[in-house]
Write a protein that binds this DNA or RNA. Structure first.
Lengths: 211, 211
DNA sequence: GCGGAACAATGACATTTGTCATTGCGTCTG
DNA sequence: CAGACGCAATGACAAATGTCATTGTTCCGC
């Protein structure tokens, strides 16, 4: 099925996959193994395992989910780049969020794929990225640069806790702030995001990938 | 009309899969196709397609996600049972929610698997279910029967909107109720769920699968 | 070294939210 | 048929939330 791989029999592409849902992890591995020119050399189910696996196996391409226990895929990508690891990185996620994409590219990722793309595109993306190309949904890329995250660190922190249902008082003691200060930050965040209350603000920030 | 596999269990198991994330759909199909005795005869990316595919192909087993466009996997399962379709149904989802499991079994499903189980268990579950057995995580099953959904329809409705960040006033006009009534329902829901505010209540209800 | 930004706080105020008691209506169900 | 339950509403009250003005601090860039 693949002319390049079968004809020239070049070194197969070595891949490591990180994904916390075992079913999906196994399935993606099966999907890639079908391709003659790709070999899955290791699997990881959380961020820490992923780093160990990549450093040990030095694969050509590393595919990772974002939302994982211990360490997110974005954090793993940043750490690998910090260690000058030459492995190309593809982020594979459910979420078409501008903020995620931006952070992914900042962290040195070469690709950003959505899980609702066609399955065939995964293997193709692996080959593209290995050749040094970038693979990013053009529509999402456009959106990513249009609107930068307006929140400060404190606003983000406070908003995250508020979105989980904590009261201003709870948040204040969690962060060792006064309750008034917490209300100030929330008020700022609400106005910056054009929301009318903390819950809506948190929802908006979440969909943009700013939380 | 009905090619039953009762020979010398040499016949392949025919399967239909429904899953809205293309990448996962393709990957799961690949995973099952690896098994010599299972064949994926159709794929669907939403609830409506799923029903059509199952009715047309009459597979031995139907595997479906819950959260899909057009119609949820639970609704699909209920509809198939209503039409006396003999196909065995496996729900495959991310969420270990008691409410989901209960509704799945009510809808006549034979299996309830979590996406974070080991990938090898899927094929095994297909075979088990085809033999007429049930496949349900025992831990989750225990929880499902322990705690029934305490919310009334109105409480659920109001809580859902509140969880999206709407104010009591918004919810009132959305549902053509007075604002006081909305507050009453929310107060009831908060107390029933042991929460301290609407956001926490919505969060709790969501994790239990009651929303 | 000056201005700007993020951080932190206080006080005052209006609005929203959560609670409770109470009433009324309709629909089941034993 | 009585009683239970869900639905819908009102009024009153306390608590939480959101807004604004104002005052400090520190740190960073120009």
């Amino acid at each position: 099925m693949n002319p390049v791989a079968t004809k020239t029999n070049r070194t197969t592409l070595r891949v490591v996959i990180a994904e916390d849902q075992g079913m999906v992890l196994g399935a993606l591995a099966a999907l890639l193994e079908i391709e003659g020119d790709i070999s899955v050399v290791a699997r990881a189910r959380n961020g820490k395992e992923a780093i160990d696996a990549v450093l040990q196996h030095k694969p050509d391409v590393f595919i990772t989910d974002i939302e994982m226990p211990v360490m997110t895929g974005l954090e793993v990508a940043a750490e690998l780049k910090r260690q000058r690891c030459p492995t190309r990185i593809i982020i594979l996620t459910t979420f078409a969020r501008a903020g995620y994409l931006r952070r992914a590219l900042d962290a040195g990722a070469s690709g950003y794929l959505l899980k609702d793309m066609r399955a065939e595109e995964l293997a193709e993306a692996v080959r593209r990225v290995h050749r040094g190309l970038r693979v990013v949904d053009p529509e999402l890329a456009a959106e990513a640069w249009s609107e930068p995250d307006p929140l400060t660190d404190r606003e983000r922190q406070v908003l995250r806790l508020a979105g989980e249902g904590k009261s201003s008082g709870d948040i204040a003691s969690d962060l060792s702030l006064s309750e008034g200060t917490v209300r100030n930050y929330l008020s700022e965040a609400i106005s910056k995001l054009g929301a009318t209350n903390r819950v809506e603000a948190a929802r908006i920030a979440r969909t943009k990938g700013w939380l």
